[in-house]
Design a binder for these strands. Structure first.
Lengths: 235, 235
DNA sequence: AGACACCAGCGTACGCCGTACACCAGGCGA
DNA sequence: TCGCCTGGTGTACGGCGTACGCTGGTGTCT
């Protein structure tokens, strides 16, 4: 009997497998490490094999975005639009915190993906169901902006860039340099107060979740006020 | 007399010249075309020559961001914080509309640039000068998020990606496909109402400036209300 | 005047990247 | 049995950022 070549016969690729592997790769090594070559290597396959399952790299990242967006909870069955919107956004935020690189990927796309459109459509539906006019629902969606998807675009945000420089940078704040306080006194003041225990770097030491909900509620309350007083376009 | 080689003797490089050329290149050809090689070619120089004036590519884009941020008007001399903040943000918006690729560049940075820090610091100063507590000023800055810099992160925004695919895409809306209305009925409804003249693609046909100011004023009014009622942290 | 250090720009080369194109092995319906 | 279809392979191209070593012109000091 000829020796049976017992090569493990790895399970064949599929679009699902490719996308899932891409998500884990990005989670672990950062979005910059998500290259066709690295991904192929993780899957034990030659780079060009991927092109039988995704059209090109852009379509790949569109795919992984949709996989992640799919993790957001469906809207609650509740008649209070404010509660539904709030909880859904907080769910989205939880998801995007598990995959911090996604927000940047979303922004880099030139066209929103189907899953994002579906998510936004559903949220518009919640507003409409709460009695909002088409016009007000429209403006309100613009007002939420990226916050509707659970990220607030902070300019300071370190998490979303995690892994982009290779080092996971535990980086213990390093005590903000002295010149910082001279050049940016107001920011320094905030930084000191925000991290009441010890003066750390800007953006660290402040409660991200609190800040997010603060802004979210500010918007939702403003929106509620407009709605209650029967807002109509002033255009 | 030996023939005098009248080579035009191009003016030598300088960090300023490099950064300015980078801005125009990105303005004209999109951020994706801003490569060391393209930039060098525009300057009539070999790629490696640039490295005598900028440390590396990251430092280059940090530099161009700062050049652009420098175009934002200084704050008005006015005692009304709300007016000052509003006008400054609208000035920032005007600048970022001239250079639509900048917002994405800003978000891609892992660390805010000095000019951005200075801008934000100045805005915090305006709030503080208006009588805001450090805490409230802090939360309020978070609430503004990227809107403080004049862009609202729309997920639909086509302008910021201009030139990224090469074609400047005049792209006459192309009449949103039929399946769109089926899959995303609420978005379709908005799209129809927003562009009352003719049904065009989502995001086109709605007045970006109006939307921006709508959201900005919603925030500013919410902020004013908190301020007037002497907000203190509920943490 | 001559020697010399400095420095802006040059050339070459390396290792990444996305992906076009031709090829091939196995399975499966005709 | 044949032929096709599908999914994985191999090679190659052009573009990217940038490390490293060189060179020629300029300014300075003797």
């Amino acid at each position: 009997m000829a020796e049976q070549t017992e090569v493990p016969r790895r399970t064949p690729l599929s679009r699902q497998r490719v996308l899932r592997a891409a998500v884990t790769l990005a989670d672990e090594a950062g979005i910059d490490s998500l290259s066709m070559r690295n991904l192929a290597q993780d899957l034990g396959v030659v780079p060009m094999a991927l092109y039988k399952h995704v059209a090109n790299k852009d379509e790949l990242v569109a795919g992984v975005i949709d996989v992640v967006i799919g993790e957001i909870d469906p809207p609650l069955a509740d008649v209070d639009w404010k509660h539904v919107v709030r909880e859904r956004i907080l769910s989205a935020r939880r998801v995007l915190q598990r995959h911090p690189w996604v927000s940047l990927a979303i922004e880099s796309q030139q066209t929103p993906t189907p899953a994002i459109l579906a998510y936004l459509d559903s949220m518009v539906g919640t507003f409409r169901g709460g009695g909002f006019s088409v016009d007000l629902a429209h403006h309100v969606m613009h007002a939420m902006g990226s916050r509707a998807l659970g990220f607030s675009q902070e300019l300071f945000d370190a998490a979303r860039n995690a892994g982009r420089t290779g080092a996971t940078s535990p980086e213990p704040p390093a005590a903000l340099p002295a010149q910082f306080a001279d050049r940016f006194p107001n920011l320094a003041e905030i930084a000191v107060v925000a991290s009441h225990d010890d003066a750390s770097v800007v953006g660290r030491g402040c409660d991200d979740q609190f800040e997010f909900e603060f802004a979210l509620d500010l918007l939702l309350e403003g929106i509620e006020r407009l709605h209650q007083q029967g807002w109509t376009s002033s255009r």
